[in-house]
């Protein structure tokens, strides 16, 4: 592991000034950053521990929107009464990820910055454009079972591994960030990016920006929702494919609005707005769901070991939509 200097500012302004140092990085829960530092993939020379900053707490506003402090742990978020009541999809997604220990440690802000689990990204004996820009991608022709089928590029086929972010994408979360230049709000849909020719950039966050909170806008999706995660074992494994689905139904059962986001298929949580529009105003049916799922994966392209994700993705999406309708919690 790279030697580094450690700082633990108690004021945000100090954190924002310390991050200006060369090769500095924020650390929150550390569950992914320390992992990568041990592999010598991440080599910060300054670590700014943000845990003493006042970025905790979950606050529900009168309009139904919820603010989640960047330092709220994944577990605290998932089990928080307001989240369970007003954003149960987020709870479900978080609890489908990692392990209880990791969820106790990992922060919501940090989860947004989780890096890919691509085997090649982690292994310095191989080529990886994300780890070393311009070195090539050994995954494209290699073992690519867990890799992307949507939105990938010729330089990178890695996927974003988070479950939480898939639900955040479905819920139109806003990411509030701060830098010496001031504050800005980034839509979750704009937060993560596709790899294109610069896969070393996972997100559109600037290196000196600090995530301060996640705002969930008020949503009508606490009844008909579902997070379905399919993986190679029943727990403590990353998704091969996951689908966050939420519906707002008319009294008669017609879909007033829908949200669909997929995990495990792309370099970012995969929202398909067009597919959501296809659902709007329709009555839920097997055929409708099949058509929509086909649409989502119409442009999907697999590789030697992950071809199955296209078919799997469609089935998981249909199933998740079906369960969201059928198993809608009556309140």
């Amino acid at each position: 592991m790279n030697p580094f200097s450690y700082h633990r500012p108690t004021e945000t302004k100090d954190a924002l000034s310390q991050i200006q140092k060369a090769n500095a990085k924020f650390i929150g829960g550390g569950t992914n950053l320390i992992d990568l530092m041990k592999e010598y993939v991440e080599k910060p020379s300054e670590l700014i521990d943000v845990n003493a900053l006042n970025l905790r707490g979950v606050k529900t506003h009168a309009d139904g929107s919820i603010d989640i402090g960047a330092l709220v742990s994944n577990a605290d978020c998932a089990y928080h009464a307001d989240i369970q009541t007003h954003a149960p999809l987020l709870s479900a997604a978080i609890l489908a990820g990692a392990s209880p220990q990791l969820r106790n440690m990992a922060t919501c802000g940090g989860n947004l910055l989780q890096r890919t689990r691509c085997y090649y990204f982690y292994d310095k004996a191989t080529k990886c454009n994300k780890r070393e820009p311009g070195s090539g991608c050994d995954a494209i022709e290699g073992f690519n079972r867990i890799h992307a089928v949507l939105g990938q590029s010729s330089s990178c086929i890695a996927v974003h591994p988070s479950d939480m972010c898939v639900a955040l994408a479905a819920l139109n979360a806003e990411i509030h960030v701060r830098s010496p230049r001031g504050e800005r709000v980034i839509s979750i849909l704009e937060f993560h990016r596709l790899p294109e020719s610069t896969p070393e950039q996972d997100t559109n966050l600037h290196p000196d920006e600090l995530i301060t909170m996640i705002r969930l806008p008020a949503n009508p999706y606490a009844t008909h929702f579902n997070y379905l995660k399919v993986r190679d074992r029943s727990s403590y494994a990353f998704a091969l494919v996951s689908a966050a689905v939420a519906f707002d139904l008319e009294d008669g059962g017609t879909i007033k609005s829908a949200r669909l986001a997929m995990g495990g298929v792309a370099h970012k949580p995969w929202r398909d707005l067009e597919a959501e529009r296809m659902l709007t105003g329709k009555r839920p049916s097997k055929d409708l769901f099949a058509t929509v799922a086909k649409h989502v994966f119409a442009k999907a392209r697999g590789y030697k070991h992950n071809q199955f994700k296209v078919q799997l993705g469609e089935r998981v999406l249909v199933r998740s939509m079906t369960e969201a309708i059928e198993k809608g919690v009556k309140r």
Partner: peptide, 29 residues
């Protein structure tokens, strides 16, 4: 495993179970 992938290093820190391999001691001052 030293990477938070097995749980053998689990301890209880400030009342919560955590993987002690994935945190720096200095962060737990």
């Amino acid at each position: 495993c030293d990477h938070g992938q097995c749980g053998a290093c689990t301890v209880i820190c400030d009342g919560q179970r955590i993987n002690s391999c994935l945190t720096f001691a200095v962060m737990k001052d």
